[in-house]
C-alpha cells in the first residue's frame, strides 16, 4: 500500500491508483473536479486539465516537488506523496484559467439548453469561474446535427472531453464515432454523419458533461429541476435494467442511468430502456433517488434568491427587493 496526503488528509491506496482516485477515497471538498476523466472508460482523462493539482513532495524516495502541476486523474500515486489541491493558490488560479479556456468558445446558451441544472460545466464555472469574459472575438460555430434517431449533437457546447468517443469505442462495436479535424476546429462526429445504431449508443448522452449530446425524446420537454427522480428497474433482456426515471406526476419524461456522487453512471443502460420505455407500467418503481451531486437539483448549491431580489453588478451583493 502507498501512503498519500492530499491537502492534509492522509490515506493509503494500492499501487497504480491515481491521485484523483485517492482523493475520491478521502472524499469531500478536496476531490478535484473532473470534466474528461470517467472511471468506467479506459484511457479517458488527461485532456481537460481541470483536475490539475500540485505535487509538493514527489515520494518518500524522491521528495522533490514535481516541477509542473499534474493532472490528478492520470498521475499515479507514489509512496509518501504530498499533494495540494484546494490549499494551493496556484492550483485554484490555474483552475480558474482552465474554466476561462473552456468557456471562451462556449455559447453560454444555458437558458435553452436541456443540460442546464445538471451540467458539469455550469457547476465548474459556478465554483471556479469569473462572471465576465475577456474574450471579444467571434466564437466558433457549428451546425446542430442528429447522430442517430434519438441523439442530438450541439457541437458548439462540446468541450472535447472525448468521453463519448471512448464510450462508443468501448461499449459498442465499432470505431464509428470520433473526432474530426484538429485544434479548435476539432469536432465530434460519426463517420460521415452516420447514425450510431447500437443498443448502447444512448449512453453517450449520460457521459457527456455538457449539453452537447442530448436526448431527443426529452428535448425541450421540461426542466430537470422540475422533475422528481425515482430509482426504477425492469426485467430487461439487454442490460441490467436499473435506471432513474425523471417524472412529473405519473408521467416519465426521461430515463437515464444511475449516477454516483461523482456524476458517473453506475451501470450503462440500453437504448430500449432509455428511449422506448416511458410508461410507468413498464417499470417497477423502487423509490425516490437522491441526487448526490452538487447541482441545482440537489437544492442549496446555488444561492437561493428571494423573489424580486437583485444582484448588485458592482459589489455582487444581494440587494433587497426594491420598493417599486
Amino acid at each position: 500500500m502507498l501512503k498519500i496526503t492530499i491537502d492534509g488528509h492522509t490515506t493509503e491506496v494500492e499501487e497504480g491508483t491515481t491521485i484523483l482516485e485517492a482523493a475520491r477515497k478521502i472524499g469531500g471538498e478536496i476531490v478535484p473536479p473532473t470534466m474528461c476523466y470517467y472511471s468506467k472508460l479506459k484511457g479517458s482523462g488527461g485532456k481537460c486539465r481541470t483536475c490539475l493539482v500540485k505535487v509538493s513532495k514527489g515520494s518518500e524516495n524522491d521528495p522533490r516537488p514535481m516541477p509542473k502541476l499534474v493532472a490528478s486523474c492520470s498521475t499515479p500515486v507514489q509512496d509518501g506523496m504530498e499533494v495540494q489541491n484546494i490549499t494551493s493558490p496556484e492550483v485554484l488560479e490555474t483552475r480558474k484559467a482552465i474554466v476561462e479556456f473552456l468557456l471562451i468558445n462556449h455559447p453560454l446558451d444555458c437558458p435553452v439548453c436541456d443540460q442546464a441544472g445538471e451540467c458539469d460545466l455550469q457547476d465548474l464555472s459556478y465554483a471556479h469561474g469569473v462572471d465576465t469574459s475577456r474574450f471579444e472575438e467571434q466564437k466558433r460555430e457549428f451546425d446542430v446535427i442528429d447522430i442517430g434517431a434519438n441523439i442530438k449533437l450541439h457541437m458548439n457546447r462540446c468541450i472535447l472531453c472525448y468521453r463519448c468517443v471512448y464510450t462508443v469505442n468501448q461499449i459498442t462495436n465499432g470505431r464509428i464515432h470520433g473526432v474530426l479535424y484538429r485544434g479548435d476546429a476539432s469536432e465530434i462526429s460519426t463517420f460521415i454523419q452516420n447514425a450510431i445504431e447500437n443498443d448502447f449508443s444512448g449512453n453517450v448522452i449520460d457521459v457527456c458533461p455538457v449539453g452537447a449530446l442530448t436526448d431527443k425524446t426529452f428535448r425541450f420537454k421540461n426542466r430537470v429541476w422540475f422533475l422528481k427522480t425515482m430509482d426504477i428497474h425492469r426485467n430487461c433482456p439487454t442490460c441490467a435494467g436499473r435506471a432513474v426515471a425523471w417524472m412529473n406526476g405519473n408521467e416519465i419524461y426521461r430515463v437515464t442511468g444511475r449516477k454516483d456522487e461523482f456524476g458517473e453512471v453506475e451501470e450503462f443502460i440500453c437504448n430500449e430502456c432509455r428511449f422506448a420505455k416511458k410508461d410507468v407500467n413498464d417499470w417497477i418503481i423502487e423509490g425516490p433517488r437522491k441526487i448526490k451531486r452538487t447541482s441545482i437539483i440537489s437544492v442549496n448549491h446555488y444561492e437561493k434568491l428571494k423573489q424580486g431580489a437583485i444582484i448588485n453588478p458592482v459589489d455582487k451583493k444581494i440587494e433587497k427587493p426594491s420598493e417599486i
Binding site: G46, K47, C48, R49, T50, A97, I98, F101, L102, I104, N105, F135, E137, I159, L160, Y162, V179, Y181, R182, G183, D184, A185, S186
Partner: peptide
C-alpha cells in the same frame, strides 16, 4: 493551426 486540440489550454489558448 497545428494544435491537436486534445487539451483545453492549448486548443482554446492558441486560437485566442
Amino acid at each position: 493551426h497545428e494544435s491537436c486540440g486534445q487539451c483545453s489550454p492549448c486548443r482554446e489558448g492558441t486560437g485566442w
